[in-house]
């Protein structure tokens, strides 16, 4: 029972209910950080850990939280973890901290974290909430890394900062700028929804129907 539930949560958060292309959460950071794989990786690890630990903590104290102030408590717990990550980065990973700069603080505003706190951690035990938060973060990470892969490759001709395309390659400046992330996110959504719609109705025509939620 427990095992099938964890597997179901994993599949849900990575695919059927992915935070980016189904729930459309955390889009701001998708636009901001994905022009570079290294930043994307650090940022998404930060979001995953924050979501996991804040869901865990909130689930642990869910019985004590009065409904009136539950959102305030969620914000306190989420910002607690983000500031903790910032302090740790500053002390032990100064390079990463310098690279990320303002983005660490922006983890707080990521809608996925509060979304999971509201939708899952309120009504589930801490262990399962931790898993739910972590897998939500992984779903976010998977999509962002895919987008960053395309953007860094075409925008800089490199992957993780290592040049892979020849010197003669002309970088697509648009790929470094935020608008390109709009196009790529839209393409990912289109692809994911077409595949999911195709699975739901095997006889679906080549024109995918808009899947209304």
């Amino acid at each position: 029972m427990a095992k099938s539930k964890t597997a179901a949560i994993l599949k849900d958060n990575l695919w059927t209910n992915n935070p980016i292309f189904i729930q459309i959460l955390g889009i701001c950071s998708t636009l901001a950080v994905t022009n570079n794989l290294v930043n994307t990786l650090i940022m998404t690890v930060g979001v995953s850990l924050t979501t996991a630990f804040s869901s865990f903590t909130l689930a642990g104290i869910q019985k004590l939280i009065p409904r009136k102030v539950r959102m305030i408590v969620q914000v306190v717990v989420i910002s607690f973890y983000v500031i903790l990550i910032d302090i740790i980065l500053r002390a032990y990973f100064p390079d990463a901290s310098k690279q990320l700069g303002p983005y660490v603080g922006l983890i707080i505003t990521n809608c996925i974290i509060m979304g999971r706190a509201e939708a899952f951690a309120q009504a589930n035990p801490p262990g399962l909430s931790f898993w739910d938060g972590l897998t939500s973060g992984l779903g976010y990470m998977a999509v962002l890394l895919a987008i960053a892969f395309v953007r860094e490759l075409l925008g800089f001709g490199s992957l993780f900062g290592i040049k892979v395309l020849p010197e003669s390659f002309v970088p697509w400046t648009i790929m470094i700028m935020a608008p390109s992330a709009f196009f790529l996110v839209a393409m990912v959504m289109w692809w994911a929804k077409s595949v999911q719609a195709g699975k739901a109705q095997p006889k679906a025509s080549s024109k995918p129907q808009e899947a209304k939620k």
Binding site: L64, V69, I72, V73, V77, F80, L84
Partner: peptide, 17 residues
């Protein structure tokens, strides 16, 4: 309860930070 709870939560988390 709401006042005491909010106060305690803030004190604990800010203290750790």
């Amino acid at each position: 309860y709401v006042v005491v709870f909010t106060f305690v939560i803030c004190a604990v988390f800010v203290g750790v930070l």
